[in-house]
């Protein structure tokens, strides 16, 4: 059905999307926490900054990453010279670009879950003797888990299809950074590649749909688990 190269693109897409979610989940939860609960100067600015990837052209995000994480960029140079880590034109770079793009999706979802959480429950936990970390782990986190899960799955599904930022920052290298959408793009640029593009588009569509259905299903189960139905 699919050629080995095409399977490679599917595998790479899953790996990049998966790694992007792994990388951005914890910071996204922290940022969502700060935005939902924190009262600090610059909160609105942070809010805007987090949402920037939703409105800025993905190519611009990719260009920004290139400036920051390129071999001569302020962060990229340090990573390369001190730790020997190179992000441009690598799978890791593709994951980073995808993570930045899907970051706001997770933040929004987690934040919605947090804002719907009754702070009275945390107050009750305090009166029952639970300290900050204790009540975060035993009350807050379980109750916001549907939001985290929904955010993670949505980000994963969206990450499968990230194009602009990835191609700008990580380029289109088969087996390294050529994810599904990049492979589809490459196929459409090749004479006689229409059939391959069609097959990959179908796979892409199926994966996204499966991801969203899975998110809905898992969200419901979690909702029941935390007693919200």
């Amino acid at each position: 059905m699919l050629s080995p190269e095409e399977w490679e693109a599917v595998r790479l897409s899953l790996a990049v999307a998966g790694r992007s979610v792994l990388v951005s989940l914890l910071p996204a939860v922290l940022v969502a926490w700060a935005l939902a609960r924190g009262r600090f100067p610059g909160r609105m600015l942070l809010d805007a900054l987090v949402h920037l990837p939703l409105v800025v052209p993905p190519v611009v995000v990719g260009w920004g990453l290139l400036m920051l994480f390129g071999l001569r960029g302020p962060v990229g140079a340090v990573l390369n010279d001190w730790f020997g880590i190179r992000l441009v034109f690598t799978t890791g770079g593709a994951a980073l670009a995808t993570a930045v793009m899907s970051f706001p999706l997770i933040v929004r979802s987690v934040r919605l879950g947090l804002e719907g959480l009754d702070p009275g429950l945390e107050a009750a936990a305090r009166t029952l003797g639970a300290g900050p970390l204790d009540r975060f782990l035993t009350v807050t986190l379980p109750l916001m888990s549907p939001g985290i899960l929904a955010g993670a799955v949505t980000a994963f599904a969206a990450g499968l299809g990230e194009f602009g930022a990835v191609i700008t920052f990580a380029s289109n290298i088969p087996g390294e950074t050529q994810t599904l959408p990049l492979a589809i793009y490459a196929a459409t640029q090749t004479p006689g590649g229409e059939a391959a593009a069609g097959r990959l588009a179908l796979v892409s569509f199926a994966l996204a749909l499966a991801g969203l259905l899975l998110a809905e299903l898992a969200g419901r189960r979690l909702g029941r688990w935390i007693g919200r139905t």
Partner: peptide, 9 residues
């Protein structure tokens, strides 16, 4: 509390 505040999970 008035609104019991039991942990739903």
């Amino acid at each position: 509390f008035q609104d019991s505040r039991l942990f739903p999970h």
